[in-house]
């Protein structure tokens, strides 16, 4: 098991290197640093000196991948690729284009992101699984059909509608919670209730339908028939037998997103003014701060790979038949 994990972690290195290569190519080869400087400083009326200064301030004035002027190892290390891409492996993200320390920013913004993502994760898992079980309990009746139709309709609605509509009705018309904002400590709850519920609702349709399909597949198995033959009630069969077995695909499917909870949600955070990583990313995209976008791409990939690893491990934990080699 440990050997497997180590091997998987080693396997992650070439993938992360690939991610780095892609972002490097995107940010430095497709457009030269000169182009970026001109973009940032405004296309017209820009002097070569201003471009030089902009590049020097941000460390973009080095050669891209190979420094002829330096000696020995510094031929490699005194380059943009080393500075901006390889250093990320040491979780050194450098400074954003407006001069702030990205690492510090990320650490301080992680808490609000988690404060919203973790409750959302558990609440939506609980609600969707219960809803799907309810649909399966009433399977092949009008209620089931209505439920599925509701799910299809719910997943056809734009996520923006849930957010905008929810903010409008709950915060503006009913005046129940603040429209947006954030506070530290327990005070944060009143800011978090609405975003958590809205993101739960926005994901309800598609996942409930998917879980329902899993449950339905499970319900035709032999052990279910045996349980019924023993005279167990339908509710008991569903909640004790079907749920337990169906949880295997559900949990393993869900584990992959756990690490990415750190990243927060782009839309929810920016609409509700929560100072998390999601809104950080959006702001960076809006102000074309490429250093931050690069850092977030790297972190996102690390977390995703971690999620894949956790998924494989969770398979062995919940299903002893699966062996990792």
């Amino acid at each position: 098991m440990i050997a497997y994990i180590v091997r998987r972690l080693l396997y992650a290195i070439p993938i992360l290197l690939g991610v780095n290569l892609i972002t490097f190519a995107l940010f430095f080869l497709v457009n030269s640093p000169d182009d970026m400087a001109r973009m940032q400083l405004g296309v017209k009326r820009v002097t070569p000196e201003a471009i030089q200064q902009w590049k020097a301030e941000r460390g973009y004035d080095k050669p891209l991948v190979w420094n002829e002027a330096a000696s020995g190892f510094h031929k490699m290390s005194e380059t943009i690729f080393f500075d901006k891409s390889l250093r990320m492996f040491a979780l050194d993200f450098g400074r954003s284009d407006d001069g702030r320390d990205i690492g510090l920013e990320i650490r301080s913004r992680m808490v609000p992101s988690l404060a919203i993502a973790v409750p959302t994760f558990f609440l939506s898992l609980f609600v969707t699984v219960s809803f799907a079980l309810l649909l399966v309990f009433f399977r092949a009746t009008v209620l089931d059909t209505a439920g599925v139709v509701l799910c299809v309709a719910a997943m056809s609605i734009s996520g923006l509608f849930y957010i905008i509509g929810g903010q409008y009705v709950v915060s503006k018309v009913w005046n129940l919670v603040p429209i947006s904002g954030y506070a530290s400590g327990l005070d944060a709850t009143r800011f978090l209730i609405l975003p958590v519920i809205i993101s739960m609702l926005a994901g309800l349709g598609s996942s409930a339908r998917w879980y329902r399909a899993i449950f339905l597949e499970e319900i035709n198995r032999d052990y279910v028939r045996t349980a019924r033959a023993k005279g167990l009630s339908e509710l008991r069969v569903l909640f004790r037998h079907v749920l337990k077995n169906a949880l295997i695909p559900i949990l393993t499917g869900v584990v992959v997103v756990i690490p990415t909870l750190f990243m927060g949600s782009l839309l929810i955070e920016s609409f509700f003014g929560i100072p998390g990583l999601g809104s950080y990313t959006i702001d960076a995209i809006g102000s074309q701060d490429f250093a931050v976008v690069r850092a977030m791409v790297f972190i996102g990939s690390v977390l995703y790979i971690l999620g894949l690893l956790l998924t494989d491990i969770s398979y062995t934990l919940v299903d002893p038949r699966v062996r990792l080699q």
Partner: peptide
């Protein structure tokens, strides 16, 4: 590699 980059971020970049 492509899959491990979060979709929105890759699109944004």
């Amino acid at each position: 590699v492509l899959n491990s980059i979060p979709g929105v971020l890759l699109i944004a970049a």
